[in-house]
Write a protein that binds this DNA or RNA. Sequence first.
DNA 1: CAGTGAGCGAGCTTCCGCTTGACTT
Length: 801
Amino acid sequence: MAKNLVIVESPAKAKTIEKILGKDFLVKSSFGHIADLAKKDFGIDIENGFKPTYEISADKKKVVADLKKEAKIAETVWLAADEDREGEAIAWHLFNQLGLKKEKTKRIVFHEITKTAILKAIENPREIDINLVNAQQARRVLDRLVGFEVSPVLWRKVKPSLSAGRVQSVAVRLIVDKEDEVKNFVITSSYRLTAKFYSTDTKKELLEAELPKRFATKDDATSFLSDCLNSSFAVKDIVKKPGKRTPAAPFTTSTLQQEASRKMGYSVSKTMVVAQQLYESGKITYMRTDSVNLSGQAIGQAKAMISNTFGEEYSKIRKYKTKSKSAQEAHEAIRPTDLTRNKISGDSAQQRLYDLIWKRTIASQMADAIIEKTNIEIEISGNKEILSAKGEVIIFDGFLKVYMESADDENGNSEETKGMLPVVNKGQKLTLFEMTATERFTQPPARYTEASLVKNLEELGIGRPSTFAPTISTIQKRQYIEKGEDEGHTRKYQLVCLKEGKLKERIDKEKTGSNKGKLIPTDIGVLVNKFLVNNFVNIIDFQFTAKAEIEFDAIAAGKKEWNEMIGTFYHPFKKRVVNAMENAEREKGERLVGKDPKSGKNLYVKIGRYGAMAQIGESEDEEKPRFASLKKGQSIEDISFEDAIRLFDFPRSVGIYEDLEMTVAIGRFGPYVKHNGLFVSLDKTDDPASIDEVRCVELIEAKRQKDRERFIKTFDEDTEIQLLNGRWGPYISYNKTNYKIPKTKEATELSYEEAVKLIKSQKGSGKKTTAKKAPAKKAVKKTAPKSAVKKKAVKRTAKKK
DNA sequence: CAGTGAGCGAGCTTCCGCTTGACTT
């Protein structure tokens, strides 16, 4: 029996550490936090110094019970949660919830999983740092208060089920602000002048130069070109300047997400899923980190590896410091666990991400690249303007041998790769090949991608490595933002070219305005943001978190009481909440777009209970207004009258199939065709306004086929038990609850007895179907047709069973 | 889930961070 119980946060970490510590130590994991604020009444006693009520999280009951059992029989319990605010709180909760004794409990910390680091930690135990725990309690309580006080205001004033929070609301604000900048940006154009010269008499090599200044109009550019018709050109000067490039720091969560997005196009969640796989198979260190630090062991291994492979002159030991003020640095940077492995087994995503991490880590310990920048100035006879040709030569490649960081392409211009220039001499005459003035447009600011949003949040100190990916999915799930799908359009631009003593004009085309994959606010996002800015500026302020962090630090240092800090924040904040609840205007975003030609009534667009909608007539009128949902991609801000009025064309009858009518309409989940009680979603490419009978039949048949495939078999003994094919493979459905089938079993060969056994063994543990219950139906509508009432009532009782 | 959207207003929604499985469009 092990004398020592060590508790860490991550199970993968537990496995590694157990190997290091040997048989006297049992190493277990808490799987992160085990306790959290109770859900009811905020879990905070506001009247009594904000005293929190904690409860063991539902999914951690088992973990805690198990740990409790092991702790009882151990001589010493070592609490080895991470060394940061959250880790200290985890240790504290473990101490409390496991009922540990002070005499037999020790708190230890290490920042890297190496034998020396862990043994050193064991030799230097300490007690739980209650000040640090209090800083965490302040953080937790603040977030609960903000989230649970402000969200209900939104339910009342904008739309039910919405949410606000210290992190998510700022993320949305960044995206809304950016969209405003894009919308307000005025695109102008100017003319950029480039010239190509023959550098030798053999006319083999071309020297490319550019005029530093731009021309405002085509006339200006043309007049410059015609001035050059009879000019001669000569090299005025050649200036060489030495330069260098330095490798980027090893990966943190946020920089890994950015690079994987830029180099491989991964979403932040994809990057995290793949990184987790690499971590669990022991190939990389922990992937949720804000540290750029490498262990001494890793640095030593990198040095040996680089010297052996590339030569000693390529190695340079570097220690990086974090630039982020909010960093807590409980772990190492993300790096391969074994730097000598430059290739791994695994699927292609794993291999590519590993390769990226390996290269970045190795490069971070390599020498600078030495470059030489050259600028050739070219004079024009009879003209005071000077052309300039810029080039770059790598004298020593250094870290560039393995890795080059990508840059965010802020303005959509691809970075020009400056290469080597042909050899020319000072005073040499040059022959003009061609000179071109090209119309260039100014670019609006780039919209955020997932990764560049993460970068921005991190710079503001908002959010943590473990929450960047979840935050992005939260604001998408709340439908505050969505990913753009617009491919853009082509735009014409003009060129004036001087060649062989003649001026010629032509027009070319380029693509612009794509927002594909970029983060765009929705109508609701814009509205909620407007409401929050109007009523809770202090919470939405970009500095709110940074200021709170300063106070958390003071609490951690024992210079401030956490409940005092919360009190100072809460009382004025609560006044704003009450004020907003009582006085704030309901935010509907209503806009009058025109008049319905048929009834002569007003046509509005606004946000309703279920999202963006159009409405004909007034709510106050005796006769009920007509309603229609907006389609995906349409916005109350800029939908045209024509598009809005067309929404009332639905439901539309498309024809008869099997003696029954088919109708096309737009519902909660987009356009669909309905036939004999069967609903089939239209394809993205189908236009609900023009879709025909043939296509609808095709869709219905495809849906029927899919439903048939879903069905594997039933048993004669009990037809209620069904074997079905789902998204995650075959499963058992019985009485509206689902049960899984072990992966080792072939579903088609499952017997009735086995199925019953599976159902019994999973009973109780099986959660009710997670499919979110339909939004609570309101009391039956009085005006609704009777048949509909009946249908709903029947459905409901059936569900209750 | 699917032609909702006001209303008398029950009873529901909601936060951030730390971790993995469980999830059944």
